[in-house]
Design a protein around this nucleic acid. Structure first.
Length: 315
DNA sequence: AATTCGGGGTA
DNA sequence: TACCCAGAATT
């Protein structure tokens, strides 16, 4: 299948189609060559990894940094090596093993995903895009990542790192838009190699460049393999024009913080915990009630069958 | 398209 | 402090 940059995609540096193709190919080659040396030795990249291990890593890495995921992933895969193992586990054990990776609904979905893989695919992770997308907790990014990293198949992998790399090198802006636009998706589609193997390597390499060199905070442009062809650098590193519109995620006093405290309490408890003790996580009674109810609604917490004032992680 | 959903390391 | 991190699901 041929990939062409749609007419509605403005790519300043790519005015002439022939020059564009050349520039993009040069950029890709440089990034992939850099990756051969610079790639981190992560456990889910080892030859002995499994497709399921890759999927587990991708779900854990959704909004959680690599350094925090790695130890949890190692313990997790030793304990539940296959989808069937996780499918048969106690949900309380799963949530405790998830520890403080954050967004514990991901752990719930990962177990649902394991059960779906067993039920729908005989326990083997599918390599089909639609089958992957149909799995709980698997969205556009994760489906593409699993296809590329577990199966070496062609897919357009766009995470926050790739978005930033494309924004800088090709579009010439400090950062991409707050939301993932159709133009960005089209650009990523056009840049991704058509070949299976080349596509998979570009995906890993472009993500790694964003994670190690083309970072959000203090990019290491001096040691960047594509600094000579970077549109952002050529433009003189213009600052982010939307900086004032970007809203940092509030944390102190939020429901997310309160929910996190309730979950932490229940992870550490070996027995059901009384409602009154759970509500002590904040002074705001209404908020505490709301958060506890929300956790129950989400299936992260269950009231005891015998005493509705006692709560625990789901069996 | 906008919101919600954890948690911790770093500048 | 504020910002950022291999996003997904819901409204």
């Amino acid at each position: 299948m041929r990939c062409v940059v749609p007419h509605n995609v403005r790519v300043p540096i790519l005015t002439d189609p022939l020059a564009a193709a050349h520039d993009v190919a040069t950029l890709r080659d440089a990034v992939v060559a850099w990756f051969e040396d610079a790639a981190r030795d992560l456990p889910w990249r080892r030859p002995d990894r499994t497709a399921w291990g890759v999927l587990v890593s991708e779900v854990m890495l959704q909004q959680t940094p690599v350094v925090r995921v790695e130890p949890v992933w190692r313990a997790w895969m030793l304990r539940w090596p296959t989808p069937a193992d996780l499918a048969a586990a106690s949900t309380a054990d799963v949530l405790r093993a998830w520890d403080r990776l954050g967004y514990p609904r991901r752990a719930l979905r990962l177990q649902e995903c394991a059960r779906a893989v067993v039920a729908r695919h005989g326990g083997a992770v599918p390599d089909d895009e639609d089958a992957l997308l149909a799995l709980p907790g698997v969205g556009e990014y994760t489906a593409a990542a699993v296809r590329a990293f577990a199966f070496g198949r062609r897919s357009v992998v766009v995470d926050t790192n790739v978005r930033r790399v494309l924004a800088r090198t090709l579009t010439g802006t400090a950062l991409p838009e707050p939301s993932y636009t159709a133009a960005e998706r089209a650009l990523a589609q056009a840049v991704a190699p058509a070949d299976d193997d080349a596509s998979a390597r570009w995906a890993a390499a472009s993500m790694e460049l964003g994670a190690l060199v083309c970072t959000a905070r203090a990019p290491r442009c001096a040691s960047c393999p594509v600094r000579s062809s970077c549109a952002w650098r050529a433009a003189g590193h213009p600052p982010d024009e939307l900086a004032h519109r970007r809203r940092g995620q509030a944390w102190h006093g939020t429901d997310r913080q309160v929910r996190g405290r309730v979950m932490a309490l229940l992870r550490e408890a070996s027995d059901p915990v009384d409602r009154e003790r759970l509500l002590l996580v904040t002074d705001d009674r209404a908020q505490a009630d709301r958060c506890l109810a929300g956790l129950v609604e989400d299936g992260l917490v269950e009231p005891s069958e015998t005493d509705p004032d006692l709560f625990a992680l789901p069996a």
